[in-house]
Design a binder for these strands. Structure first.
Lengths: 207, 207, 207, 207
DNA sequence: GATGAATGAGTCTTCATTCAT
DNA sequence: TATGAATGAAGACTCATTCAT
């Protein structure tokens, strides 16, 4: 699954990167506020700080912006997560740490994650597949942490259970954003992490 | 939170009901395929089996269709769930039954639930609030089942834990549709129910 | 210039007359409020007290309603004017009386006259010609009154002057409605009649 | 009463002016032929020489075009009138000159004035108030000319009479367009001016 | 490279009119 | 005769995209 090439009329790679970062930042703000379809390219250009003509020097179509946004968000989540996971604990504690790290990263990038959750479905087929693969990769990251616990004999789970637990953990992290209207009203982030970690671990720590 | 009144030029309530059912059915098919924004009112009319003029005899705007769709889906989920829950078991078994029932209902109405998940954000503010309330109500239903177990002394959970568990159960049910590309590839519905029920219950059955 | 035949599916002439009167009354109210083009046939039917289907039993098209309205207004103005003119004065006094009568009739039928002034241009060609002819006839009525004064030697005017004076009188009467925002703020009807009569007569009473 | 701001997406003020002039010219032609409501925005765009998209770069709604038209006509009438009034006569002669000037200007801008007369009622409330104010201003201009004669002792009129005479003169000028089907058949412009001037002045020159 | 005016296909919505009951 | 549901042509307006400067 290769990174899709977004066409640009401009040669200077440095400039391309800079302009696209401006676009992505602007797009996240606008998409969060009004969604992908209700946001116009003109608005994105304006919020980015340049003209509509310039916008189209760096992308081929409006959908490219959405793709750029989703791709950037995944990269940022991955990167931040990896940074947080560089801890030297093992076993159950490493799983606890991973859950905590994941939840915190998602909380950190709340708006971005929410946008991705709500709008990625509007991606063209191929781009969607690429983004889905990233989600699968991320699930695999969590899976590995759990599997390590199993390998160490701290958990006793089948492969199926490992995979499902990973999905659950990821979705419970996302839930923090897409059910914010309920969960963020009832719990602080710390409480949420505490409670969810407990429920998850008890679930896995069966005989 | 009152049911929003969708305007109609037609007087015959029977007919309104019938036509709107046609519209909703058509809309779900189309929204699932291309999303709310990419579906035109003309397409909905055509798929419904009548003209664009007739469509607008039964609604005030395109957004009304989305509202009608979301409202109908919730009603259907609720109704089916209530029907399945009329079992005479108690305690943990009733919770198991509820989880199974919920998951089966969601599986049954997969397309509908997916559409609602992806498009309800496009509802106008007020309608969104109404739909959100329905989601809250449904969460409360699950909460009650769990609370009953607590009251019977079969579970030992704080209110916060009860509420969170209810959210988790609901989201895990929805997950079956919005992560279908992963979970439905790895598990049959029965396996999924079995495994999730286990994970949830173990999580709740702590000392 | 023949009265245009407005088609009807109904035979009973009595009923046609009754229904059309209902329609005209309703239409005047609505046209005054929002103009011919912004008034829908449905609204006219509703205001008339019957269904849209019934409306079309008594006319062939929306424009027919406008024609019916204009025609009725002219007939009413004419009739009322004739009634008021049945006075047995002669010469200048009869002209004064005519002016007063005309102004009072127009004041009486203000809304109707205004509607006719503003909307008759939307009549189809042929109907417009018919209505224009009625206006010409009415001008002729005033002309005759002036001409009588000339014939009696009380005024000394050329045919051209007689005709122009008639137009002026009529337009000054209409002015009472279509410049109401100015003239009805500055003058009472009596003042207006008094002042205009004076200006007109002084104009005609030259050596 | 401020000039209403018509929105435009284009920045270049020069261009806005040019394009709007094209639009106004096109609109007058079309409105005269078929009225405001029967003229489509597409037709206006085409007659203006650009696309429908471009039209909407320079206005916010169809009604804006009507407003632009009415505003432009008033400005043109005012300007032309002021130019013609720069004569160095005094007293009754200046009034005669003013009447002649007004009538000639109206004749010059016949189509425009007629359009404004027939369509301005379709303006939205606020814009209508603005246009009415312009009409009031113009009436005041005539009033001043008459009042000067009174001040010089050449006419002996009350304020009420002065105001009413001004209204009459203006309406008689407009009459030349909105009763063209009658008056322009019977009189040449010169005759019309000659006769009306006479009738008006005799009316005012009472003892 | 940057700009922004121009384009026109596409969208929602209205409403005069018809016709089966 | 009366009704009102059905129709679809037509209209106002939007917005992604292009291209000359």
């Amino acid at each position: 699954m290769k990174k899709k090439k977004v066409p640009s009329m401009v040669k200077d790679q440095q400039l391309i990167k800079k302009r696209r970062e401006q676009m992505i930042k602007a797009a996240v703000i606008l998409f969060k506020e009004k969604g992908f379809h209700r946001t116009t390219t003109r608005e994105i250009a304006k919020e980015s700080g340049f003209s509509i003509g310039t916008l189209y020097e760096y992308i081929g179509s409006k959908e490219d912006i959405l793709y750029l946004v989703c791709d950037a968000i995944y990269d940022e989540v991955s990167e931040k997560l990896k940074k947080r996971l560089k801890q030297d604990v093992e076993g159950i504690d490493s799983l606890k740490a991973a859950i905590g790290a994941l939840f915190k990263v998602i909380d950190d990038l709340q708006d971005e994650v929410l946008v991705m959750y709500q709008e990625s479905k509007s991606l063209p087929k191929e781009a969607l597949a690429y983004v889905l693969q990233k989600e699968i990769d991320m699930t695999a990251m969590i899976e590995h942490v759990i599997q390590d616990c199993v390998n160490l004999g701290h958990l006793n789970l089948s492969d199926q259970e490992v995979k499902l637990a990973a999905h659950n953990i990821l979705v419970q992290a996302h839930m923090w954003t897409f059910r914010r209207w309920a969960v963020q009203k009832s719990y602080s982030l710390e409480e949420y992490i505490e409670l969810q970690t407990q429920l998850i671990l008890e679930g896995l720590l069966k005989e």
